[in-house]
């Protein structure tokens, strides 16, 4: 930090004007979140008040208690949904990052025959949205006998092209020289990737972790699973929302609850994104 003190001070001054804009926009971003929290703390009679109020008179935790006690599915305890979602999110994110790192490395750093074609496949697979291919995907899962298992929830997300696409583009930023140095010192490709390249890609990998984990945490893939005890949190939340106005409070409580994990992941990874290259001594 010391070395660039003067520079960052200069940048700091210039951004004060921008900070005001930032504050305004930031406030707009946070409002819905605050609103959800307020709603979740309202007792039923306050939720029914028209027009809705942005504050709560008699805050109560009864919505949260109700959420934990009977979560839509009646006999399945709330904790089960949480564990399911946690497991699927963790496994999916971990596998996704590994597979994406493996794929991005040769595409960015070894120009081999066919690498361009593979990268094209990656880019254009980005376009296949789940909505469009929902029906063929279901047929596929059925053929693989994956319906109603965690595999159906995890595997497609591992193959999502976002990670490989993102990491490949970040890896281009890393100078070839450090990899040559590693190879001179006798490091294998695996070692070069996981001990030299990956640490220098920390901001990108952490960003990817944020994106993938939050996508998986919020995705329900409801049509792939029908056994109640395999279902995920969003499915449960959906059931609550579908049950109408009377359960708005519980729905808000569940929404707030669901936002906790992505927020934690976000804050932890963002605070770990330090200026990697500026300080780790990569100089071309």
């Amino acid at each position: 930090m010391k070395k660039r003190g003067r520079l960052s001070r200069r940048r700091k001054q210039s951004s004060y004007g921008f900070l005001i804009v930032l504050l305004l926009l930031g406030a707009f971003m946070i409002l819905p979140f605050v609103y959800a929290i307020v709603q979740s703390l309202k007792p039923l009679e306050e939720i029914m008040v028209f027009p809705p109020r942005f504050y709560v008179v008699k805050p109560t935790l009864e919505n949260y208690v109700a959420m934990f006690r009977s979560a839509g599915g009646d006999w399945i305890p709330f904790g089960r949904y949480v564990v399911n979602s946690l497991f699927v999110t963790l496994a999916g994110t971990f596998l996704h990052v590994i597979v994406a790192l493996l794929a991005a490395f040769p595409l960015a750093k070894m120009k081999f025959r066919g690498s361009k074609v593979i990268f094209k496949i990656i880019t254009y697979s980005l376009l296949f949205s789940g909505t469009v291919t929902a029906f063929p995907q279901y047929i596929l899962m059925a053929n693989f006998r994956m319906i109603d298992s965690y595999t159906a929830l995890i595997l497609p997300s591992v193959a999502t092209p976002m990670g490989a696409f993102l990491l490949k583009n970040f890896m281009i930023q890393i100078p070839d020289t450090i990899m040559e140095a590693a190879r001179m010192d006798g490091a294998s490709n695996y070692r070069t990737l996981f001990q030299i390249v990956a640490p220098n890609l920390k901001p990108a990998v952490l960003t990817l972790i944020i994106l993938v984990s939050q996508g998986m945490w919020n995705g329900s893939n409801a049509s792939f699973v029908y056994t109640e005890k395999l279902k995920l949190l969003p499915t449960m939340l959906n059931q609550i929302v579908a049950s109408g106005t009377a359960r708005i409070g519980v729905g808000s409580a569940a929404a707030v609850f669901m936002m906790i994990l992505p927020l934690i992941v976000f804050v932890v990874s963002q605070s770990k994104i330090i200026e990697t290259m500026a300080f780790s001594g990569i100089k071309e």
Binding site: P32, Q39, M48, L237, I240, T245, G249, G251, L263
Partner: peptide, 18 residues
């Protein structure tokens, strides 16, 4: 975080349903 899927439906539902 909010605009993805069910969370949006829940937050929005609570905002519009009333």
């Amino acid at each position: 975080i909010i605009s993805s899927g069910q969370v949006a439906a829940a937050v929005e539902g609570s905002a519009t349903a009333a």
